[in-house]
Design a protein around this nucleic acid. Structure first.
Lengths: 340, 340
DNA sequence: TCTTGGCACTCAGGGCGAACGAGTGCCAGA
DNA sequence: TCTGGCACTCGTTCGCCCTGAGTGCCAAGA
């Protein structure tokens, strides 16, 4: 049975351990938190908590350390998000508001998150797939060379160069421009390829080849999920504070190089809820010593991407959760504004 | 006096130390390299080299370790670039050739460099300042909202959103488009702002305000050296192989977060020569334990940016230098092709 | 004059054992 | 049900010695 006082003890253990990075004993616990009972009582509670698997003793003569299960209980039942200070809120607002474009928003968010949490921060670039086509621009560079520019509702711009078989004049290009824009403007990118497929049939026969080529690269750019896999990483220097290098730092550094791994860590579930994945709960056994606090972002339940922080299981969950949520909200709001 | 045999000894010490990461003694030296003399002789040479400051003894009963000065001599006089293997050349060529755009080239280069050298790789994005304006595109999103797209000769695309005071119709926009392109196409970006300044005076009076706004953001985008500071970093996981964490890894991880620092490390000197900066020779005292092998790149002496690797002073200089040079050449060639 | 074998010397690192002390589990009494 | 007391455990630290790699120097040889 886990009664209220045992929960208090668990909370105290987690907080102390996160702060000191050392196993915490019964005596230190009653001293540092006003638990109102004696160390002996706490010891009994600790024994019970250990039986239930919430805490663990590295060796007989040491204090207790929370297990993953213990952290889980802490996060689910005991943690209240630390409210951001006014100064922090202001910092978030001003820093993100002064971003000049999408890339800048992402990069500032990463920096912000890593500074707020003193952890490694990860921000996924908004995915293409949910966004809509805002405009397609065709720019003739030479008579047979056209720069195709795809502007999406999220503010992302994709560019491709096309070599045409036959030269086109500006008037032809204007026709094609109208055609592709009519076909795809406002269409979700997932559906846009299909919408564009008919374009070559609808133009004058002598333009069909050019249209084909242009629609080809557009389809290519839209289905190119390379940009879906883009993530920004920051705050790796915070890894330096980690204790043991081989089990914690190295695997994480390796994971940070692999963007696919990162995306899986963030959880591409598509949900916008704030999720915490603790140690072994994650998909990678090498990362059993690290936790992830992540959430989706995007205006009004419209999931555009995820962001979060990665750190040791022994991390400040309430603080990280609050920071992640706050940054996600601001990012969502900004993307929404840019979209009006 | 440093005669030929002493140089041989120094070379052998550097090579062994790089390979084993341990101070190298006289006996092991004659065994592993066919020096043709006895350990005692080597000891005498070592003593001389130590007097000259090329090598150093961590403690009395240990072998010798090269000093920064020793590495310098090694790099200047003794190192011959390790030729890339055919397989490596092919890997470089195919990987970089299949890049779809500028960002992709940079990202692939980083990955390539870090894999070839097993070091941390840094690649600066091509700077704006030396490139020329290829095309400016104006896209009307709403009557008072225009997306301004700046296409540069390096393939870089910059985008800005402008809010106009008064609505413009497509015909107005077309006029403005012609005006700005006539003024700036082919002009070096450093001079383009001046060239654009007159545009608002040359258009019909009722368009002057819009022209002003558009030229404003263009000038802003061109003078915005934020993108000059963009660098890509890869291979940080290789830091895990470093021995001592506090003096080597932590300062470097911190430096890698600061792009300005990275650029200084790469040496923005503008020279395209392959440079090696060893330990304390660099600008940051915290990075006294790290060396940088860097070079500029760009088609035909036309400096667009720098790339290189960062690692411990105890690194494989010949291998790193060869890899850095090879990648820089390929990148230069590709940027040149895209520019024809 | 340079090279070589011999030899005494130095000193970091590893292994060992004792003392230490933080922390526990358990028990009897309030 | 809580508390104080007490014996017990065991990882950590410290001092010690020993080992061995590596050196510097010297005298003899080429």
């Amino acid at each position: 049975m886990v009664d209220d006082r045992k929960l208090d003890v668990l909370r105290a253990i987690v907080e102390d351990y996160v702060a000191t990075e050392e196993p915490v004993g019964s005596k230190a616990l009653v001293e540092r938190h006003g638990l109102g009972v004696s160390p002996a009582t706490v010891r009994n509670d600790m024994a019970a908590l250990e039986d239930e698997g919430y805490i663990h003793q590295p060796h007989t003569s040491a204090g207790r350390v929370p297990t993953d299960k213990g952290y889980r209980l802490f996060v689910d039942k005991l943690a209240t998000l630390k409210p951001m200070s006014a100064a922090e809120r202001r910092a978030i607002a001003t820093l993100l508001d002064s971003a000049v474009d999408l890339d800048d928003v992402v990069q500032r968010s990463v920096r912000l998150l890593s500074q707020l949490t003193r952890q490694v921060a990860i921000v996924q670039y908004p995915t293409l797939s949910r966004s809509t086509v805002r405009h397609i621009e065709l720019v003739s560079l030479t008579p047979t060379r056209v720069m195709v520019i795809l502007i999406l509702s999220t503010g992302r711009v994709e560019q491709r160069l096309v070599e045409l078989e036959a030269p086109v004049v500006e008037a032809d290009l204007a026709e094609l421009r109208v055609a592709v824009n009519q076909a795809s403007a406002g269409v979700q990118i997932a559906a846009a390829a299909a919408a564009l497929a008919d374009v070559p049939d609808g133009v004058r026969p002598e333009q069909a080849d050019s249209a084909h080529a242009i629609v080809g690269v557009l389809t290519d750019a839209m289905s190119d999920h390379r940009s879906d896999e883009r993530v920004a990483v920051g705050g790796t220097a915070n890894l330096a504070r980690y204790g043991d290098f081989d089990t914690a730092v190295r695997p994480l550094l390796e994971a940070l190089e692999e963007h696919v791994v990162l995306l899986k860590l963030l959880g591409e579930s598509g949900t916008d809820a704030l999720t915490v994945r603790i140690g072994h709960e994650g998909p990678y056994s090498e990362l059993a010593a690290t936790s992830v606090v992540a959430t989706g972002y995007g205006p009004q339940e419209f999931h555009l991407g995820s962001l979060g922080v990665v750190g040791p299981t022994r991390m400040d969950y309430p603080g990280s959760m609050a920071a992640v949520r706050a940054v996600a909200r601001y990012v969502s709001r900004i993307l929404d504004e840019g979209n009006q």
